[in-house]
């Protein structure tokens, strides 16, 4: 069998739906045994990306290989190597988790007995025994997601593709999914996950591709992406507009700061850290205004994301988004 260090490689991968370019010339690579994350707002093209890699959608341009197999030319070889968890749990709601897993093992080509053994072990390993005999439609959202994760593991995949695995989950279920993903990677599986959450990407991914409007707008490790945004800074939040105006002109004489009148926030670059923080507080004191908050901040992935995509927060803003047809 061919040895390869690269699990996924895309070159100029493109998907058009009529006029809409859902994925626009995306190049990236995932080394075997790492977690890569596609990070971006709704409609950025993440789902279309993973659907193409999972052979569920055909690229209109460029190419993609999974463990050296072309997604268009050798779809069965790709399907044999990957497992996909979509945004909706891909389980028959009227069957139990166990029945679903057996169904998948049988479709994978296993005989009855072999399928039963695999599923038994899997239920143990993913620890879904307590609800494995309940029809999926009657279990909780978090349990369903765990059953779904178990379903992707039936085929002992080499590449696990998770499309927004924690969207809509409560924090506890989210932690369970995260720890399972980490365990899987420790056992040698490669993971590609999409997410809208910078925190999730930061927590899990070795490599992040930031997507916006179908394009890969940035890529790198979480540290590299944060570094792109630059150094630490001091943020000052003012109580009222008048204080904001006074202080921003005062600070501008000393620093090359940026002011955001909507949030009444002034941001001052602080390469010297605490020393700059002291300097800023002195200016505030001499200007005679009272600040609601003064804080030294290190760049977060959020800043990077905001700078790259112009979309500030996760799902809480009714942005005008392009719906990507499924």
């Amino acid at each position: 069998m061919r040895r390869t260090e690269i699990a996924v490689r895309t070159e100029g991968l493109t998907k058009r739906f009529g006029e809409l370019v859902a994925v626009d010339h995306v190049d990236f690579e995932i080394p075997t045994g790492t977690i890569a994350s596609l990070l971006g707002p709704n409609g950025a093209g993440k789902t279309t990306m993973v659907r193409m890699l999972a052979t569920l959608a055909r690229p209109t341009g460029g190419s993609a290989t999974v463990f050296g197999h072309d997604v268009v030319g050798e779809p069965d070889a790709v399907r044999a190597a990957i497992a996909l968890t979509g945004q909706f749990a891909g389980l028959e709601p009227n069957l139990t988790a166990k029945e679903n897993l057996i169904l998948i093992a049988r479709l994978r080509g296993h005989g009855r007995r072999s399928a039963a053994r695999i599923v038994e072990r899997l239920i143990d390993r993913v620890d879904i025994g307590e609800f494995a005999g309940t029809p999926i439609k009657s279990v909780s959202g978090g349990q369903r997601r765990r059953a779904d994760l178990a379903a992707t593991l039936v085929s002992e995949p080499r590449l696990l593709v998770l499309d927004e695995p924690t969207t809509g989950l409560d924090p506890r279920s989210r932690q369970v999914v995260w720890s399972t993903v980490r365990e899987l990677v420790a056992s040698g599986v490669t993971v590609l996950l999409t997410t809208q959450s910078r925190e999730e990407a930061d927590q899990l991914a070795d490599h992040i591709v930031v997507m916006d409007h179908g394009r890969a707008v940035a890529a790198g490790t979480p540290a590299q992406l944060k570094a792109q945004i630059g150094d630490q800074r001091v943020d000052v939040v003012l109580l009222d507009q008048a204080a904001f105006v006074v202080l921003s002109s005062a600070l501008e004489t000393w620093f090359s700061c940026s002011a955001d009148p909507d949030r009444r926030t002034i941001s001052v670059p602080a390469p010297r850290g605490a020393a700059d923080l002291m300097a800023v507080t002195e200016v505030i004191a001499s200007a005679g205004v009272s600040a609601e908050e003064v804080a030294l901040r290190r760049p977060t992935l959020d800043d990077t994301f905001l700078a790259l995509t112009g979309v500030p927060a996760e799902g809480d803003k009714a942005e005008e988004q392009i719906e990507v047809p499924a």
Partner: peptide, 28 residues
């Protein structure tokens, strides 16, 4: 198995040889 690691959930459960397409169609 290749050098590329795959997730193992236990002892290897070998896949039976892949039957011909019409047989697979009926079975699936």
């Amino acid at each position: 198995m290749s050098a590329v690691a795959a997730l193992r959930i236990g002892p290897i459960e070998p896949l039976p040889p892949r039957p011909a397409r019409p047989i697979r169609f009926v079975r699936e």
